[in-house]
Design a protein around this nucleic acid. Structure first.
Length: 902
RNA sequence: GCGGAUGUGGCGGAAUUGGUAGACGCACUGGAUUUAGGUUCCAGCGCCGCAAGGCGUGGAGGUUCGAGUCCUCUCAUCCGCACCA
């Protein structure tokens, strides 16, 4: 009788053995001559203190790739570290009085202990945290080099200010007008900030992202949209009469539609355009408009089609193609100061926003583009602008041209008039990196009244964070520290002030992959980079992944990275989330609602209404909600209690007061919804292998997977069943093997190994797991045949090696049970023998008029004629074609026979 | 509004050059083993139908001997961006 596999004992044993053998230590290029390299990387975690199932899935996927590559003969780099600077540590400091550094390193220790239990094939010798002074010191050196190259600069600008986190946010970090972490409504403030010149690489970042074939299309598209390239023209509208100083040469606008210039009826400036602001000094109505526009811009909750607002600035400009024609200049709230020149011309017939604005303020609407197949008399613009292509009319020298030709002709004309030229504009803006926080990388500069901004000399790096800081007041502790910021100027020696802003933590994660490849050896970096396979969440599609691409270029250009393409991640995989059902406690009220509109206790009705909608379905199904086994009739007043965790369900159901459990939607695991499952508890109960197996098995890796208790238990049962394949192997064969059966079993094993190999290469882990299931079933069936021992042993040996990427500990136990030497984790991949992958017979479907009526099995060498004859001879086929004329027969060798009858 | 995806049994999903739709897993049903629960094993499991057979990949058309796969239109859901001139 087979023994049971004990994951707890086995997993610890193997982890210790791997560790003792230094199995996953990275080899230098010299130690692995001739082997191709593979840098496998998962996005490193923020040390929050606890591992969650999302981590397990992310790192399990990376580990499948790393272990598979290792078995395939690659020299593998698979490191791990910590993205350790950030707000939560400061929040902990404020709430609990613990130093952010202490809190962070404690969390790292706790999480690392959890990580180790997962059995990941990581090289921990390269571990670092971004808050280690060695790391952020190197980052400071990099910052100074970039400053030297002009890739870093300082300017006063409007910034996104998060009033909860008390810091600045980059544009990428503002989502729907709210801070990405705090969720607070972001305000605009004018501050002097440090910027990375990411726009310097806008064109390259856009062009190269299209070439990253091993990135998901979705991410590539998102980045391309974010960079937002537009070709158009920038040109001046000469101003009539006196204008604010500096604008006497005219108002500059950007457009992508110069072909519609003859339809222009106004020029509009952004509310914070310098001209608008200058006029506001003397004109109260302009000032009032700016205030109103700013108010709407920042407080509008759901930015639902904010109304078009404007004010006539009282200026007029001359049309570039006809100086005798002048049009008014307005300021409008829909014009963005940050895009293009912050000014537009309105051509209402060809742009919906311009049309809305023109209708509201009664400005002319002159159609200039005729849609194909429409006559001028039939074309009228009322409330819908026509933005499509067509023929230009009402437009002087552009008349009769197509829109495309007219764009070119108009630009040429503008150029010849010396008013402007063709330009390309990007939506992407420079990356503001100043943060008014303590727990981040100090910006290594000193401000001197005499010398200005002075870089900290290299031999004084790293600029370390002071340890003695207080978090009792909001704001930046570095600013308030009594001594830290007071230093002497490195240039003139006079008293000066240290920069107290720290760098955005996204800077830390923009180059960590290079540090993993080598601390500072450029040759070693060149060997490992780019990362061959990067694995992480899609939420970083524009933030981290764009910044990292920028940094790789910047590092290359300052000589820190020999990476010609500038692309740090050759392959990217974005994995789905781990979800779980949600549960909510429901408390019954001793009232029954007669009608929904009954004016009962207002709040209760409100709750009952919202719940009533949710309950209609479950109650229809008859089982979802019951109090003490009594079904709740629709219309009963209940109140929604709090979210409860899966293990509280029994407790709530058994509660003496009338409570029930409402099963809610399946959502991403989160603390607030209490639908998390603790990896530690799962590992303690089932083992790490089972946890890994389950998060990879059910869904394709890029989609969400729903965690279910039944699913984990199924995975655990399968692990035991797989173990019996090995544990049940007898030492000696008792019968002679049947040659045909032996060959069939060998073929099944070799085909399975090949299928698993292919599926892993294609990131179809769920398919690989399905193949392992089938394989185990085949091997279990073979147990009844006592003559097949050699073939069973061969299959088992291959299976153990194919199992390594998924359930590495169990694979080792199986390997050991087989009596094989060394570690399964170090064994080469079981390559299938090509001869065993081909069959000499084929099964073909037989169709009559495209409907399947039977199947035939033939030798592979049989001719099409033979196949046709065999098909015709099938009784089921014969009955369908009896008495009918066969019009033709299609034979696709090895696939199908289709008989077409009248 | 723009952009990107995705729609297949009760559920997660296979089918990746146009060629046997539903692999594999979960759930469920029946049976065997077990004092019982659990485990394990065997069998069944798209829908309608007693059967013969018919119908089936969101919907409607089309191309083809043959369509989940290709084309046109359409509906739904999810994600991203959102006054970007």
């Amino acid at each position: 009788m087979a023994t049971r596999y004990d994951p707890q004992a086995a997993e610890q044993k193997w982890r210790e053995a791997w560790d003792a053998a230094q199995l996953f230590k990275t080899k230098s290029p010299q130690e692995a001559p001739g082997a191709p390299k593979a840098f496998v990387l998962e996005m490193f975690p923020y040390p929050s203190g606890r591992l969650h199932m999302g981590h397990v899935r992310n790192y399990a996927m990376g580990d499948v790739v790393a272990r598979h590559r290792r078995a395939k003969g690659y020299n593998v780099l698979h490191p791990m570290g910590w993205d350790a600077f950030g707000m939560p540590a400061e929040n902990a400091a404020m709430e609990r009085g613990v130093h952010p550094g202490k809190w962070t390193y404690q969390n790292i220790a706790a999480m690392k202990a959890q990580f180790l239990k997962l059995g990941l094939s990581l090289d921990w010798s390269r571990e670092f945290a971004t808050c280690d002074p060695e790391y952020y010191g190197a980052q400071q050196a990099l910052f100074l080099k970039m400053m030297d190259k002009g890739l870093v600069y300082r300017k006063a600008s409007k910034v996104n200010w998060d009033p909860v986190d008390n810091t600045v946010l980059a544009n990428e970090q503002v989502i729907d007008g709210r801070g990405w972490r705090s969720g607070a409504q972001v305000e605009q403030r004018e501050l002097t900030q440090w910027f990375f010149r990411i726009t310097h690489y806008a064109e390259d970042l856009l062009e190269e992202v299209q070439k990253l074939e091993r990135w998901p299309d979705k991410v590539r598209t998102m980045q391309a949209n974010w960079i937002g390239k537009s070709r158009g023209a920038t040109f001046r509208w000469p101003v009539v009469g006196p204008v604010p100083a500096g604008f006497d040469s005219g108002i500059e606008v950007f457009t992508t539609r110069p072909d519609t210039l003859f339809g222009a009826s106004f020029v509009a400036l952004a509310p914070d355009h310098p001209v608008t602001r200058a006029l506001a000094e003397t004109r109260p109505e302009v000032k009032a408009f700016i205030a109103e526009a700013t108010r709407i811009g920042t407080t509008e909750e759901a930015i639902e089609k904010a109304p078009k607002l404007g004010v006539d600035l009282g200026l007029r400009v001359k049309h570039p193609f006809d100086p005798s024609w002048t049009i008014p200049v307005w300021s409008a709230n829909f014009v963005l100061s940050t895009y293009g020149t912050g000014a537009i011309f309105g051509s209402p017939a060809g742009d919906q926003r311009d049309l809305d604005f023109a209708r509201k303020y009664d400005l002319p609407v002159q159609p200039v583009v005729l849609p194909p197949g429409v006559s001028p008399a039939d074309h009228a613009i009322t409330t819908e602008a026509y933005t499509g292509p067509g023929t230009i009319y009402n437009s002087g020298f552009l008349d009769g041209m197509t829109t495309d030709d007219a764009i070119e002709a108009a630009v040429e004309k503008l150029e010849s008039l010396g008013l402007g030229s063709a330009t390309t504009t990007y939506r992407l803006r420079d990356w503001g990196v100043s943060r008014q926080r303590y727990w981040g990388c100090p910006i290594p500069v000193i401000h001197c009244e005499a010398c200005g901004v002075v870089p900290v000399p290299e031999d004084q790096l790293p600029v370390r964070l002071p340890d003695d800081v207080a978090f009792d007041k909001p704001g930046n502790p570095l600013e308030r520290h009594p001594a830290w910021k007071h230093v002497d100027c490195p240039a003139c020696g006079k008293p000066a002030r240290r920069e107290t802003d720290t760098l955005d933590t996204f800077v830390d994660s923009s180059w960590y992959y290079a540090r993993f490849a080598s601390v500072n050896d450029m040759e070693e970096r060149a060997y490992w980079l780019p990362v061959d396979q990067y694995v992480g969440g899609v939420e970083h599609a524009v933030l981290h992944l764009l910044y990292a691409r920028f940094f790789a270029r910047a590092m290359r250009d300052v000589g820190e990275l020999d990476l010609p393409s500038g692309e740090p991640f050759a392959g990217l995989f974005t994995q789905g989330m781990v979800t779980h059902e949600t549960y909510r406690e429901v408390i019954r009220r001793e009232v029954t609602l007669v009608e929904w509109d009954a004016p009962a206790d207002g709040a209760a009705v409100q709750e009952a209404r919202s719940l009533g909608e949710a309950l209609q379905k479950p109650i229809g199904a008859g089982v979802q909600l019951s109090f003490e086994n009594e079904e709740v009739p629709f219309g009963t007043i209940v109140s929604m209690g709090s979210w409860i965790s899966p293990d509280q369900i029994q407790e709530v159901r058994a509660a003496p007061i009338k409570k029930a459990v409402l099963t809610g939607p399946i959502e991403k695991m989160s603390k607030s919804k209490k639908n998390t499952v603790d990896p530690d508890a799962i590992i303690a109960q089932f083992g790490a292998d089972v946890a890994r197996w389950f998060v990879l098995s059910d869904s394709p890796p890029e989609r969400d997977v729903e965690w279910t208790q039944a699913g984990v238990e199924g995975a655990s049962r399968f692990a035991q069943r797989l173990w019996t394949v090995f544990d049940g192997l007898p030492e000696t064969a008792t019968d002679a093997a049947d040659a045909a059966e032996a060959l069939a079993l060998r073929k099944a094993s070799h085909k399975a190994a090949a299928a698993i190999d292919k599926a892993i290469n294609e990131f179809r882990f769920n398919s690989a797991i399905a193949s392992i299931h089938e394989w185990v079933t085949v091997l279990k069936k073979a147990e009844a045949n006592s003559g097949l021992l050699a073939e069973r042993r061969e299959g088992a040996s291959m299976l153990a090696r194919c199992l390594v990427p998924f359930m590495p500990h169990l694979a080792e136990s199986c390997w050991e049970r087989l009596g094989e030497a060394g570690f399964a984790s170090a064994a080469p991949w079981p390559e299938a023998e090509p001869a065993l992958l081909v069959d000499d017979t084929v099964t073909m479907a037989v169709q009559v008029n495209g409907k399947r009526r039977g199947e035939i099995t033939l030798a592979k060498s049989d001719s099409s004629e033979a196949a046709e004859a065999a098909a015709m001879a099938l009784p089921d086929v014969a009955s369908f074609i009896a008495g009918k004329a066969v019009k033709k027969t299609i034979v696709v060798p090895g696939r199908i026979v289709n008989i077409v009858v009248a």
